[in-house]
């Protein structure tokens, strides 16, 4: 695409006329304008949030526990309390599905089941939320939690205290369950891709040495695809932290730390979304913008790390 140097009659380079230089410059540089738009939009988002916030509030009080006075820590804790367990379950189940799909299932079955799992990633958040609130919450509140809770009460945090409005279905536990279902397709998909990228030679040499398929998957494929699996964990975590509407529907949005796993609580995203029903002006908007900045910082770091790991995996494969 670069402009060839124009040779003058004397063999030396003549300065191009202005318009030709302009044309050459545009031909050289125009691709950067549209290509950098996503970065520009990301920066515009950060800039608008900084503009709407009051950054001097990023002090000790901002991270304090006090809800009435610009406290944010309980929402950060709430976000981690829902996202981390959901991520752990989704990673374990997703890894199992990924191994089953790449290793054990016959081709025709995995070709039918894989697109089905991918399709689940497209189901709108609000449909999960509606289903979780109207169908799953009553079912868990009436049938599952009352049976399961006494058996699990010895685990710290699993004892339903009788003063809090517990065992009604909605709350932290249901938030974790719905969140798990929502991030399961994406973690499964990414780990499946990671396992698919393991060279056939490695599988076959493992099998030829007499290892079973499970042993090859466990000791060869998973270590090889480790970075891709970590990438899936990071991206799944970012997805879980940012998930908003469905969590808001089933978590019984209450601005306090949960006393047990059945108690209502709040995440950063669900607090932002719940404030929308109220009058959004002045200090409220400042507070939400500051919270959004914290959430954005966490998700950006997690996503950059995840993408970086996945990219490394692919270059490794390409380099083989």
């Amino acid at each position: 695409m670069s402009q060839p140097p124009v040779a003058g009659p004397a063999g030396g380079r003549q300065p191009l006329p202005f318009l030709a230089r302009l044309r050459a410059g545009i031909a050289r540089w125009w691709p950067y304008v549209p290509a950098l738009l996503p970065l520009a939009l990301t920066l515009a988002i950060v800039d608008s949030l900084i503009g709407a916030s009051r950054l001097q509030n990023f002090g000790a009080g901002f991270f304090g526990f006090i809800i009435t006075d610009y406290g944010i820590l309980i929402f950060v804790v709430g976000s981690f309390l829902t996202s981390v367990p959901a991520l752990v379950i989704a990673m374990l189940v997703g890894l199992g599905i990924a191994i089953a799909s790449t290793t054990y299932l016959p081709r025709f079955l995995s070709e039918w089941l894989d697109p089905f799992v991918d399709l689940l990633a497209g189901i709108p958040s609000i449909v999960y939320g509606l289903w979780g609130f109207l169908i799953v919450a009553p079912f868990f509140g009436h049938d599952i939690f009352p049976t399961v809770a006494p058996a699990l009460a010895w685990i710290p945090g699993f004892h339903p205290s009788f003063n809090s409005p517990s065992l009604e279905g909605t709350g932290l536990a249901l938030g974790i369950i719905i969140l798990t279902l929502m991030i399961l397709p994406i973690t499964t998909l990414l780990m499946r891709d990671a396992l698919r990228s393991v060279p056939r030679d490695l599988w076959e040499s493992g099998l030829a040495l007499g290892a079973t398929r499970w042993e090859v998957a466990r000791h060869v494929a998973i270590p090889y695809a480790k970075r891709g699996i970590w990438g899936a964990a990071f991206l799944g975590f970012g997805r879980a932290m940012g998930e908003t509407v469905a969590v808001y529907f089933v978590i019984d949005q209450t601005a306090r730390l949960p006393t047990n796993i059945y108690a209502p609580t709040s995440t950063m995203a669900s607090l932002i979304v719940s404030s929308i029903a109220q009058n959004l002006a002045g200090t409220d908007l400042h507070f939400l913008a500051e919270m959004a900045l914290v959430l954005l910082a966490i998700t950006l770091v997690v996503n950059v790390a995840g993408r970086w790991m996945i990219r490394r995996t692919f270059t490794d494969v390409a380099g083989l």
Binding site: L36, T42, S48, M241, G242, I272, A292, L295, N303, W308
Partner: peptide
């Protein structure tokens, strides 16, 4: 540049909403 686009996919939608509002 691809990384920047992939990272933008990861921005929570509620933050986009707040951006659009502001």
């Amino acid at each position: 540049i691809r990384v920047t686009a992939n990272v933008m996919v990861g921005i929570p939608s509620i933050i986009l909403g707040l951006f659009g509002f502001i």
